[in-house]
Write a protein that binds this DNA or RNA. Sequence first.
DNA 1: ATTAATACATACTTTTTGGTAGGTACTAGT
DNA 2: ACTAGTACCTACCAAAAAGTATGTATTAAT
Lengths: 120, 120
Amino acid sequence: MYETKESSTNQLNISIALNKCPVTYTLHKIGGRWKPLIIYHLTSGPLRYGELKKAIPAITEKMLIQHLKELEADGLVNRKAMPVVPPHVTYSLTASGEALAPVLNAMAAWGMHYSKEETS
Amino acid sequence: MYETKESSTNQLNISIALNKCPVTYTLHKIGGRWKPLIIYHLTSGPLRYGELKKAIPAITEKMLIQHLKELEADGLVNRKAMPVVPPHVTYSLTASGEALAPVLNAMAAWGMHYSKEETS
DNA sequence: ATTAATACATACTTTTTGGTAGGTACTAGT
DNA sequence: ACTAGTACCTACCAAAAAGTATGTATTAAT
């Protein structure tokens, strides 16, 4: 029968999980394909758009800018544009972005440990 | 023009990101909509399938079993079936599942801190 | 007039993830 | 013969995320 609902259960369930689970909340903020890599590269200091692109060659410009916009909207990243031409824009981590460091470290430690076991 | 590629760039990019970034690896393992909640409920001890369902009312049976299968395949969760009827199956965390605790704690701490700021 | 440099924007398509609705197997108890 | 109880399975569909291709603005240098 497959009736179409007015408001998607998917969206509803996202907010249920977000409210019930702070882990899901965090996951939602850093959960894009390239977001951890972007954040990682910014931990060593601010970078220009083009520098990020070079640092992550496999990312397309669309995904890079899209993730940067989301990270900015979520308050994890600052965008600073100099009104010159050609444009000069730098991205840096905000306080809450920097505060992700222990999270990323814990995840990296787990990931390195258990991805090694997999291949052995 | 949109030519269709034989092997999706999406899949390729997943493995690029997985290889470059242990954080992405970890994210990939716990990244389902309900996985953090499932793991969280299992931290207090083994639970039966039906108990998990009651613990997370909003999840559908399809998603529950699907996530459990993935968690099992990824070695985070053990499945123990008693050959009785009606069936009796319990799920518990493996060593690597338990080892996620610091990761989840870090994520929960960050999530609780920064989701509060958002609503204030 | 054309090019170079930089940081995007947008229309469209593909791939993946999540949700809906229903069904199955097995046995003990009535 | 029928029901209850438990743990699933399987088509099918919808929504979200990711990728492709191409275009835009500005100005200084050639």
